[in-house]
Design a protein around this nucleic acid. Structure first.
Lengths: 341, 341
DNA sequence: TGTGTTGTCGTAAACGTTTACGGAAAAACG
DNA sequence: CGTTTTTCCGTAAACGTTTACGACAACACA
């Protein structure tokens, strides 16, 4: 059915070794025969069998991205990841690598599926997202010595792997600064209840900024919830019922913001009028919500490209002449002022 | 580094053939040695090299899902697909198959990437979504004889592949029925401008229902736009400026509905008060929007399971004793009445 | 005891590549 | 013209599996 390198060789009456060398652009093959091989390959619609290549080379030429569900949640934060993955994919393609995203059912925090990818050697490296403070996936990968890079920082595994993160601390701080400058002093923060690292960073920035402005941090204005619409909906009333009602809310997640605004609407509180609403990671949702939500926007696609780049730079097979490098970067979020604050 | 079947054999002092047979549960191996092999496999943390297996068996044990971007759009309709893919993944795992979703940058309608998956034999079969009326991907796959199944129908390729679709025609019709029953006669329809099959089906249902009620179809009330928030935002004013202003709008997509509601808000028109809004495919967005949007909800995860099931049933290697079967199914959408109409 | 059957296992080929090695011919050099 | 170098190509092994085939022992049966 599909033509193999043997078919090409037979067709051209040369050896398979020569065919392979011609195809792979090696130097020791006559320019003429190389051309004939390439022509024949096109004519016979040849393309190399990945299993064969992988087996021989010990490399699959593909990078796995673990799409990470949260326990009890159907949410994967897709509006966030898709542009990011487009960037990753673009950069990988330039180096002849495929991106395959492996999915799991929610609930197992992916550990099992990660093992499976690693152990059956389905990918040459893996990309992790939504890192936690203590992240067992990172522990596992460093322990078995499997190459990886992360979107987001973690305390696990030391500084032995490339990582790219957004500056959630700065964003949290900037959000507070902006609200304070606009006269707010009662500012609530709503964030995911999971041990996600960015959630901690956000809260750190929030706290520090408040202190800087001489505003005491009121625990009644900080709430955790599921990282989805339901979570925001459920938790927002809690901060609104605080003794001294907040005049502003910062949501650490767009889905939570949507749910939260729903809750506010039911209480007759209008974002942009009766309360200021800021969300930390911008998505199309924020822009088209009414009122449009002021949000902090990441450069997702460039981030994807860059993290892929950084991952490659850490792999001996793809690193430049100076050898593999472990790079860490933290990218800023850009404020997009809209109508909700 | 990673242990191979040879390591196991050496460690147990038996041949690799026996080890392989033991691992694969074949009959002709002593129960005792089988147990020893399994124990050793666990102890040495053995798991088979996929490339080796694939090469020998001519099967990769993985199914590819093409995540299909739209030209000029970063939207993949993810909130829709993720639960669906969870279902697919769950069913495939039961048969020892992996699901890998392959992504492409927007703009090429995936034809190139599809070729790549097929030609390098990275998957045993592929799952297509967002089928078009004439779908070159389907043409290609049928032509080269690569197994696949589709979420959504198409006119391409005949009835030679399994397909599962939602009954968009019925939903379009039901939506109109409901609105007419509530006294509306000027009902607009907003749908994606691409040649997506479900978009045609929806409009068919919409048209037929109107005619059934003796209402003439007004082209000024039908608009196409990009299948994202921007598209809805851009196109909705168009139908609102029709001579005889519509009192209801049916959106064929949740993102378009969001953008459309934004446009309505800017015109001072409130869904649920000044206009009735219905959306055809329900997502969490619809539920948590204010007002909550009346929508038609698909059973995404069961659909995923079922389509995986149907794909497997069509593959000789996985079909039951009666041999491969090509199954077609159309599933209903369930009305979720909320506050927007 | 001879023959057939069954249970268990080893041998070796095969899947489609890549690549180290060596050899023959051509080219370059003295 | 002889020697060395270069250019090009074929040979064969290797990657980790699976599996057809045959071998051998144990056992059953006549």
């Amino acid at each position: 059915m599909a033509s193999s390198i043997h078919d090409l060789a037979r067709h051209l009456n040369i050896s398979i070794g020569t065919v392979s060398r011609a195809l792979n652009g090696r130097a020791d093959v006559n320019a003429d025969t190389r051309q004939r091989v390439l022509d024949a390959a096109k004519k016979l619609n040849y393309s190399p069998n990945q299993s064969g290549r992988s087996l021989r080379q010990g490399a699959t030429h593909s990078i796995a991205f673990m799409l990470q569900p949260h326990p009890g949640d159907q949410q994967y934060g897709e509006p966030f990841f898709i542009p990011f993955l487009i960037g990753v994919q673009g950069r990988l393609a330039e180096s002849g690598l495929d991106l395959t995203v492996v999915m799991g059912a929610p609930g197992d925090y992916q550990q099992e599926r990660l093992r499976r990818v690693v152990e059956t050697r389905r990918a040459d490296a893996v990309l992790l997202a939504w890192t936690r403070r203590q992240d067992e996936r990172i522990d596992y990968l460093t322990q078995v010595g499997f190459p990886f890079a992360t979107l987001g920082r973690s305390r696990s595994g030391g500084k032995t792997y490339p990582s790219l993160d957004l500056d959630f601390e700065q964003a949290g701080s900037d959000a507070v600064d902006r609200l304070v400058a606009r006269g707010h002093r009662r500012i609530a923060a709503i964030r995911p209840s999971l041990n996600l690292n960015f959630s901690h960073l956000f809260l750190d920035g929030y706290r520090k900024a408040l202190k800087r402005h001489g505003i005491e941090v009121d625990p009644a204005l900080i709430a955790d919830g599921f990282i989805n619409e339901a979570g925001g909906y459920q938790v927002t009333p809690r901060v609104m019922l605080a003794k001294d009602r907040p005049t502003a809310i910062i949501f650490n997640n767009d889905a939570m913001a949507l749910g939260g605004c729903k809750a506010l609407a039911e209480m007759g509180i209008r974002p942009g009028h009766d309360i200021a609403v800021t969300v930390i990671v911008d998505t199309p949702l924020c822009r088209y919500f009414s009122p449009a939500l002021t949000a902090f926007r990441p450069a997702l696609e460039p981030m994807g490209r860059r993290l892929a780049e950084m991952l490659l730079a850490s792999l001996p097979a793809f690193a430049g002449p100076e050898g593999p490098r472990i790079i860490h970067e933290v990218w800023p979020l850009e404020l997009v002022a809209r109508d909700s604050d």
